[in-house]
C-alpha cells in the first residue's frame, strides 16, 4: 500500500518536472540561472576568465551565472558535457583555440559542428622566448646558433597545441632542426628555460610578463598578425619574413539548436562587457586583446579556423592525410 503511494508520488513528481520543462520554452529567456561550463579546473586561465566575465555580465543578464568546472582531455570532457545538455540557452561553454584543435586531432567525440557560436571575446598570441643568459639576442642570431649546433630543444605544451603547431611551422620554414619538449604547465617549462635546460620556449606572454620585466627572459618574436600592444618592440614572425601567423582566441558557445534569441541576448551582453573599462583592464593584465565578434561572425571565424588548423596539423603529420 505504502509502496504504491510512493510510486504514485514519484510518477506525479516526474510529470510535474516534465510540465515545468515544456512551459520554459514559452517563458522569456533566461528564466533560470545559466550554467557556464569551464573546461579547466578552478584556478586555471579559463576558469579565471569565466569567473571574471560572469561577474561583470551580471548587470546585463536577468539571471545569475553558475560556473561549472568540467576539466580534462584538452576540452573534450567539457564539450561532451555541454553538448549533452538541452539546447535552451541555459548551458554555455567557454572555449579557446582547443575548440577546433582537440576535435581535429581526433581526441574529442564532439566538435564545432555540435555547437552554436555565441561570441568571440578576445584574441591571444604565442611568443617565442629565450633566457637572457643565452648567447643569442634576436631571431636571426638564434637561427645561426641552432644551425651551428645542429639542433635545439624547444619547449611547448604537448603535441598538437597551437604553440606546437606554430613553433613546428616556424622551425621548418627557417630550416632549424628542433626537438620539441612537451611540458605540462607554464611553471616547469619556464623553470627549464631559465635554468638553461631547454634553448627556447613558446608560451602565452601572460605567463612571462614578470620575467620579461625583471630581465630574465627575452622575446624573439610573436605569432600574431600585428605587433602585440604590450610588447611593441617585439617583431612578428611575419615581419621577419616567415609566413607563420597562428591566432589563438577565446569565445563562448552553446549546444547546437539553441534558439537565436538566446544566442543574441548573450552575445549583446558580452559585447557590453567587452567594452567595459574594468574588463579591458583585466584583458590587458592577462595579455589578451578584446576582439568581439557576434554570433554569425564568430561562426564564420570558427569555420575558417577549423580549416586552417586541420591543414596545419596535416602538414605536421599529426593527422593522417586520408582523414
Amino acid at each position: 500500500m505504502r509502496k504504491t503511494r510512493l510510486a504514485a508520488f514519484l510518477v506525479l513528481a516526474f510529470f510535474a518536472a516534465l510540465l515545468s520543462g515544456t512551459e520554459a520554452a514559452f517563458a522569456a529567456y533566461p528564466e533560470k540561472p545559466i550554467e557556464w561550463v569551464i573546461w579547466a579546473s578552478p584556478g586555471g586561465g579559463s576558469d579565471i576568465f569565466v569567473r571574471n566575465m560572469a561577474r561583470l555580465m551580471e548587470p546585463y543578464v536577468s539571471q545569475p551565472f553558475v560556473p561549472v568546472n568540467k576539466s580534462g582531455g584538452g576540452g573534450a570532457v567539457g564539450m561532451a558535457y555541454t553538448a549533452s545538455k538541452p539546447a535552451d540557452g541555459h548551458t554555455i561553454l567557454a572555449v579557446t583555440t582547443n575548440f577546433v584543435l582537440t576535435p581535429a586531432l581526433g581526441r574529442s567525440p564532439k566538435g564545432p559542428a555540435d555547437f552554436d557560436m555565441i561570441a568571440r571575446v578576445a584574441v591571444e598570441t604565442n611568443v617565442v622566448a629565450v633566457s637572457t643568459d643565452a648567447p643569442y639576442k634576436t631571431w636571426e642570431e638564434f637561427v645561426a646558433y641552432a644551425k651551428q649546433k645542429g639542433g635545439v630543444s624547444w619547449g611547448t605544451f604537448g603535441v598538437g597545441t597551437s604553440d606546437h603547431v606554430a613553433s613546428a611551422k616556424l622551425s621548418k620554414l627557417s630550416g632549424i632542426k628542433s626537438r620539441f619538449v612537451p611540458f605540462e604547465g607554464g611553471a616547469d617549462s619556464l623553470a627549464s628555460l631559465m635554468g638553461g635546460h631547454i634553448d627556447v620556449l613558446t608560451n602565452n606572454p601572460s605567463e612571462l610578463t614578470e620575467q620579461i620585466a625583471a630581465g630574465q627572459v627575452r622575446l624573439l618574436g610573436s605569432f600574431s598578425a600585428d605587433r602585440w600592444k604590450a610588447f611593441p618592440d617585439v617583431p612578428t614572425f611575419k615581419e621577419l619574413g616567415f609566413d607563420v601567423v597562428v591566432p589563438t582566441w577565446r569565445g563562448v558557445v552553446a549546444p547546437k539548436g539553441t534558439p537565436k534569441e538566446a544566442l543574441d541576448y548573450l552575445s549583446s551582453a558580452i559585447e557590453k562587457v567587452v567594452a567595459q573599462e574594468g574588463f579591458q583592464k583585466y584583458l590587458a593584465e592577462n595579455q589578451l586583446e578584446a576582439a568581439y565578434l557576434n554570433s554569425t561572425d564568430f561562426a564564420l571565424f570558427v569555420a575558417e579556423q577549423d580549416l586552417f588548423y586541420k591543414n596545419e596539423l596535416k602538414e605536421l603529420g599529426l593527422v593522417k592525410k586520408k582523414k
Partner: peptide, 8 residues
C-alpha cells in the same frame, strides 16, 4: 578505451 573521462 574511448572513454572521454579517462583522457586526463
Amino acid at each position: 578505451f574511448d572513454i572521454v573521462e579517462l583522457l586526463n
